[in-house]
Design a binder for these strands. Structure first.
Lengths: 205, 205
DNA sequence: GCTTTCTTTGGACAGTCGTCAAGAGTTTGT
DNA sequence: ACAAACTCTTGACGACTGTCCAAAGAAAGC
């Protein structure tokens, strides 16, 4: 039996690669339902159409599987967010669009978002996830900064805060909204939308 | 052998209650080092001076132990923050004091803070923690709001955002600082201090 | 002193975990 | 068609988990 590394190093678009992403998708599904602490490889396999043994055929160990999941998650995530920005013509349009997008993804993808926060936190304890998590986090920060600086451009005013702080602010608002939303608050998404629009404006006064 | 409930219902300041907090302290120590997912009862007992069996003499099960930890953590946490506010005489003094306090606790209690975020996230997956976590979260929100409204008073200007949004904003800034700090950034605390002071001011323009 | 209660220990339990390997099943190359 | 390579299942392993319990030890009441 060849090593995992050999299998990976064949041409990229491959039956092997496809199955990896297929298993990673099942893993993401399970993780977002149960959270990192309660997700086992057997549980992941049960949510796929394969048996638990196959996971070690496609991934060296649990860490590699989860790391791969995180990377795959990133792709979906950034794509999701990036569709939001480009079409705004006026500052007001961008501001409303941003608020609506945050509220929308809060409503639709709450489970995925709580998984992201879970994994980001695991990286504070488990060194193995650190690099990938920081990579995603930075891509999110850049995404927020693209919005803020585009808004500044449309408004012809420089923003009051830098990239890191802006990301922290909106991420904080979102996380608080997520907590409320998952605790059953019906108004969480609407309140988030209002806060986001208000704060974005407030950064330019 | 009497039930745990009976033992609890004796007079509060007790050998029994003392030992509970003693064990809970050891648990907090272990949790903040390893995180929720990797902390076992045996590990907790090993970081105390007792054997693992004694944990079920003082706590019904793992959930009750951790819940008790969270509550105990809350007491320390709010007390820590509340000492900050009261002595500020001018708006400027309060603003600087707030920023310095955030930066200070980021440097000194980073492990405890990452544990808090870990547990808050667990509550999004495990119903059992939900109530206690929300309780702490609300007490933190009130604590932030005390600062903001005191600042508003000293400045004689109403704040631009409400209680929930204010908490989300500063919590987001702090969490981002924590991520950077634990990733080895030397400047994280200073940058947090600057952002906090800047944003607090920005809420009143 | 002795007896009764409270406290603590350490081992046993049933279950789950990640990992591995033998072999069956499938596809591919010739 | 046969052989080689790849894919997948199944069951096993040692380690670890939360929980429970019998018994040893300590403290308190008399």
């Amino acid at each position: 039996m060849p090593q995992v590394e050999d299998r990976i190093s064949r041409r990229q678009v491959d039956k092997f690669t496809e199955r990896r992403t297929q298993l990673a998708t099942a893993a993401l599904q399970t993780l977002s339902e149960l959270g990192y602490a309660r997700t086992s490889l057997r549980e992941i396999a049960q949510n796929s159409e394969f048996s638990h043994g196959v996971l070690h055929y496609y991934f060296r160990d649990k860490v590699e599987l989860i790391t791969h999941c995180v990377r795959q998650y990133k792709a979906e995530c950034v794509k999701r967010y990036d569709e939001i920005v480009a079409d705004a013509q006026t500052a007001e349009e961008l501001r409303k669009g941003f608020g609506a997008a945050m509220a929308g993804t809060l409503r639709e993808d709450a489970s995925l978002h709580r998984l992201w926060y879970d994994l980001r936190n695991q990286s504070l304890f488990e060194e193995a996830f650190r690099v990938d998590v920081l990579d995603i986090d930075q891509s999110l920060e850049r995404m927020i900064w693209r919005i803020v600086s585009r808004y500044a451009e449309l408004l012809d005013t420089p923003p009051a805060v830098g990239s890191g702080a802006a990301y922290g602010l909106f991420d904080g608002l979102f996380q608080q909204g997520l907590l409320r939303h998952l605790s059953g608050s019906e108004e969480a998404a609407n309140e988030l939308q209002a806060s986001v629009e208000l704060v974005l404006g407030q950064l330019f006064r």
